[in-house]
Design a protein around this nucleic acid. Structure first.
Lengths: 337, 337
DNA sequence: ATGAAAGCGCTAACAT
DNA sequence: ATGTTAGCGCTTTCAT
C-alpha cells in the first residue's frame, strides 16, 4: 500500500501538501493539486484510516449497543443507524449486550480504547452506565431510557399517548373488559405504556390491577400471560400488549385456548414490527417509527460529535417521536358485541 | 487517559518493559512486573487500541457484510458472528450491502483503509468481489457462495440434500403433485435447492417445469408465486419453498385463496428461522444451523488470520453443514389423501 | 532482563 | 502556497 510519503515523492511536493489536498484544507495551487491528484491515482493511494485516527484522535466509527440484534425491533433500529452512520461517513460497530451489565461494561472499555467517536445505547443496564457517563467523554445518545440528571440525550416515543390510543381503540370496537400485558418495568417504555393503560381504564367500574400481568417482551411470555389473564377473568374481551411480540404470543395463546380473535377477544400490540402483518389475523398495533428513532439518534450524536451544526433545539434532551394507531384484523369486528 | 509513557515514568522503567508486561512477551523479572502492574492499576491504564493497530497493522476488528440485517436469517447470522468474534477478542463492523455492488465495493475500500483483520461476506455481488480478492490480502470467508477458482473459504449448508428431504417428506404425507418456489438463481443455495427438488420429482409422470416458479426470498413473492402456481395447476397439493419467508408467503396466499393448510396443500420451507413457529399452522422446514454457520465462519477466519492453529483440514475450502427436517403443522395431516 | 530509538502513516502547528 | 517537523501511543528490533 502506498503511503502519503510515496505520493509526496512522486508528485515532488511535501507530505503536508498531500495532506492538504486529501483533506481539502489549507492553500494549494491548482497546478500542484493536479500533480498530487495524478500521483494519488497513479499509486492508487488512499489514506490509512488507523494512522489518521491516531493523529486526529477520531476514527469515524460509532458503536451501537443493544440487547440482541435477533429481536426484530433492534434489527430494524440497527439498519437505520447503519444507514444514517454511513451517510455521515461513519462505520458501525455492533455490540450485543443481552442487557447484561458485564457485557455492556466490557464493551465500553473496549470502545473507549478504540477511539470510537460516539455510542448509541439501546440496552438497559443503568448502574454501570451512570458511572461510565461520568468518567468518559465519549458522546452518547440513548434510546428509550429513563431520563437522568446527567446531560444525556434520549430518543424515545410517546408511549403514554400510544397506550391510550390502543385502549381507546379497543373501547371503540366495543370491548367491555380490557387487560394489559406489560414488559419489564426497569425499561421505561413499559412503565409508560402501563401508565397510559391505567389512565385510560381506571375510571371503569370493572378495573382492577389483576387485569395487568407482566411479560418479558418475548412471544412465549405473551402466551403465558394470556393464560393467567383468562383464568382470572374469563370475560376479558380486549388485550393491549406492551409490545408486538407479546401480542403475537397472546394471539397464539388465545387461538390455542379456542378463542376467536377478534370476535371473542381483540388484540392490540405496540411497535409495528413487520411480524404483525404476517400473523393471521394481522395485528393492530401502535406504530412507533423504529427507523426514525435510529436516524434521529445518529443525527443527535453527530451534533454532539460536531459533524453537524447545532441548532436552537440544542439543549433539548428528550426527543419523543409521535406514534399512530395502525388498525388491522385483530381488532376488526364486523358487529359490535 | 494515561499513556504507556506515564506508566513507564511512574514505575521507573522503560516503555519497552511496559509493553512486555502488557503483551506478556519477552523477559521481565517478577519484581519489575509487579511494579508495572501496580502503576497500571494506579493510573487505570489501558493500551490505546488505535496506536497499537498502527504499530501492529492489526486492529482486532472483523467486518460482516450482508444484504440486510433486517432479514431474520441475517440477524441470526450476525448474532453468531458477533458472539464468536467477541470470544476471540474481536469487534464486529456491520455492513449492509443490499446486495448492491456499489455499496459492497465502497465498504471494501473503507475496510481496507481501516486495517480490518478479516471479512465475512454473506452478500452476493460477485463481480467486484472477484477483482477485490485478487488485489487485497485481507482474509475472507464467504457464506453460501458459489465456489470459484480463488482460494476462498466457503461456509454453506447441504442444500441439495435439504431439498430432497423436503420433497421426500411431502411425498410421504401423501402429496401427489409438488411445486417449488425457488429464489434468485445468482444465489448458489437457490440453485441447489431447485436441483434437489428436480432430482426428487423428475421421475414422476406429472412433473413439469411449470411446477417451479421464481421468487425473491421475501414474503410477498411467496404470495405471488402461489397464485401463479395454482392458476397453472389447481391440483397442486404440496409446495416446497426455497426459504421460510417465501413459505410464509405461500401460506398466507393459500389461506387467502380459501385453501386449507395442510389439508388441501402442505407446505415445507427452508432455513428454520424463528418465524416458522409463530405461524398458524407452524411451518415444517429444512433446518440449517444459521448460528453454526456464523460460528464456523469466524473460526475459519481466525485460522486465516492466525489466531487459531491450522489443522489437518487446513485446505478444505468448502464447508457444508448438515441439515435436518423439522416437521410441524404445515405438513401434519391426520389422514392421508 | 532492560533500555534506546526507530518506525507505523498521518495531522497540524510553525516556519518560510 | 508550500515545506519541516514534532507529535499521536504503541511495538519491536537492536544494544547492553
Amino acid at each position: 500500500m502506498a503511503t502519503i510519503r510515496d505520493v509526496a515523492k512522486l508528485s515532488g511536493v511535501s507530505v503536508a501538501t498531500i495532506s492538504r489536498v486529501i483533506n481539502k484544507n489549507g492553500y494549494v495551487t491548482p497546478e500542484t493539486e493536479i500533480k498530487v491528484i495524478n500521483a494519488i491515482n497513479q499509486l492508487n493511494y488512499s489514506p490509512n484510516a488507523v494512522a489518521r485516527g491516531l493523529a486526529r484522535k477520531k476514527t469515524n466509527t460509532i458503536a451501537l449497543v443493544l440487547p440482541d440484534i435477533t429481536n426484530p425491533f433492534f434489527s430494524e433500529l440497527a439498519r437505520a443507524v447503519e444507514d444514517a452512520a454511513k451517510h455521515y461517513g461513519y462505520t458501525l460497530n455492533l455490540c450485543n449486550s443481552d442487557n447484561e451489565e458485564s457485557k455492556e461494561k466490557a464493551y465500553f472499555d473496549i470502545l473507549k480504547d478504540r477511539y470510537v467517536d460516539g455510542i448509541i445505547i439501546a440496552s438497559d443496564t443503568s448502574a454501570y452506565r451512570r458511572h461510565y457517563l461520568k468518567n468518559s467523554k465519549i458522546p452518547l445518545v440513548t434510546i428509550d431510557q429513563t431520563p437522568r440528571n446527567e446531560s444525556s440525550v434520549i430518543v424515545t416515543s410517546k408511549n403514554i399517548k400510544g397506550a391510550k390510543l390502543a385502549v381507546r381503540h379497543l373501547f371503540e370496537i366495543g370491548c367491555k373488559k380490557i387487560a394489559h400485558i406489560y414488559g419489564p418495568l426497569e425499561y421505561k417504555p413499559s412503565l409508560d405504556r402501563l401508565r397510559g393503560y391505567e389512565q385510560a381504564v381506571k375510571s371503569q367500574e370493572w378495573y382492577s390491577s389483576s387485569l395487568t400481568v407482566q411479560g418479558n417482551f418475548k412471544i412465549e411470555s405473551g402466551i403465558e400471560a394470556v393464560k393467567t389473564l383468562l383464568e382470572r377473568h374469563p370475560d376479558i374481551d380486549g388485550i393491549f400488549a406492551g409490545n408486538d411480540l407479546m401480542a403475537i404470543g397472546a394471539l397464539k395463546g388465545l387461538l390455542k385456548m379456542g378463542k376467536k380473535v377478534p370476535e371473542d377477544v381483540a388484540i392490540c400490540g405496540f411497535d409495528n414490527i413487520n411480524l404483525t402483518e404476517i400473523m393471521e389475523p394481522e395485528i393492530t398495533t401502535v406504530a412507533q417509527s423504529i427507523y426514525g428513532m435510529g436516524t434521529l439518534a445518529v443525527e443527535l450524536l453527530m451534533k454532539k460529535i460536531g459533524e453537524s451544526p447545532v441548532e436552537a433545539d440544542d439543549n433539548i434532551h428528550l426527543h419523543e417521536l409521535d406514534v399512530t394507531l395502525i388498525q388491522r384484523g385483530s381488532t376488526q369486528r364486523g358487529v359490535k358485541k
